[in-house]
């Protein structure tokens, strides 16, 4: 709206800046290489016996990959915090309610 010149709740740098200040092409490729390496490590658990570390290491690698894509490729790390709040609200709510629901099935005791 042409007349809507409002800036009341902590105006941030606009979206374009966030992206431009995000990362270089080189940076993106580095992230992708790290992601590829972690994936290779994940797949290796199928061939190599990790013993008791198997489950925790897989879950940790999954979480690391997840947040690397969210933070760097989706720019949440550089973007306005409001975006993070909105997305993580849904994410953690989902984790919370579904883990609780599975717990009532004694899923984690099996």
């Amino acid at each position: 709206m042409t007349t809507d010149t409002t800036h009341n709740t902590a105006p941030s740098h606009g979206t374009d800046h966030a992206v431009e200040h995000g990362m270089s092409t080189r940076g993106y490729i580095n992230i992708a290489l790290i992601l590829a390496a972690i994936t290779a490590l994940e797949v290796s658990t199928y061939y190599v016996d990790f013993g008791p570390l198997f489950l925790p290491s897989l879950l940790i690698m999954m979480v690391v990959k997840f947040f690397m894509v969210v933070s760097y490729f989706m720019h949440l790390k550089f973007d306005n915090k409001l975006f993070s709040w909105l997305f993580y609200a849904g994410l953690f709510l989902a984790v919370g309610v579904y883990v609780a629901a599975l717990a009532t099935f004694h899923f984690f005791l099996r």
Binding site: D4, T6, H7, N8, T9
Partner: peptide, 11 residues
């Protein structure tokens, strides 16, 4: 609600 409030209308 987040984006279209009149000037001065804080949350």
């Amino acid at each position: 609600v987040l984006n279209m409030r009149a000037p001065g209308m804080t949350l």
